[in-house]
């Protein structure tokens, strides 16, 4: 697996978007594409030409289209299915994690996340792909 460079970050809360984007860009050195909900994320992924992101980091509970809904659409699209999806979600039970993984998610990062270790957590999940 090559280096993790571009992340599509999907989150409806503006405060979290700001905090996470700051650490991901500045501490992780990633290129970040932001979307406010699943619909916007899908609109981005379905647009013509441009390169796809290396990884999708996505909130679970969002208006319009939630995390699981978006994941289902991604996995059913041959061109997008290979993009790893990581969920960020709160108070998650072990069975739910299993459900997410079963649906095709790469992993889960717990919310609230610690800004100082978010990059490490993302990198650790990325490493599991190799």
């Amino acid at each position: 697996m090559s280096n993790l460079q571009t992340i599509l970050f999907v989150e409806d809360d503006a405060d979290i978007r700001l905090l996470a984007s700051m650490v991901l860009v500045e501490m992780g050195g990633f290129t970040l594409i932001e979307a406010q909900n699943g619909l916007e994320a899908m609109a981005y992924l379905n647009r013509d030409e441009r390169a796809t992101p290396d990884l999708i980091l996505m909130d679970m509970m969002m208006p319009e289209l939630d995390g699981m809904g978006a994941l289902a659409q991604i996995k059913s699209d041959a061109q997008l299915a290979s993009i790893p999806v990581v969920f960020m979600t709160a108070r998650v039970q072990p069975e739910e994690v299993k459900n997410y993984i079963h649906a095709g998610a790469l992993g889960v990062i717990n919310k609230p996340f610690d800004p100082m270790t978010l990059v490490e957590q993302v990198n650790a999940l990325w490493e599991t792909l190799t």
Partner: peptide, 16 residues
């Protein structure tokens, strides 16, 4: 909607 607002608050206040 309100539940989502409060859910988001729980998440963001933790991270902050």
């Amino acid at each position: 909607q309100l539940r989502i607002m409060i859910h988001s608050l729980a998440g963001s206040s933790g991270s902050f």
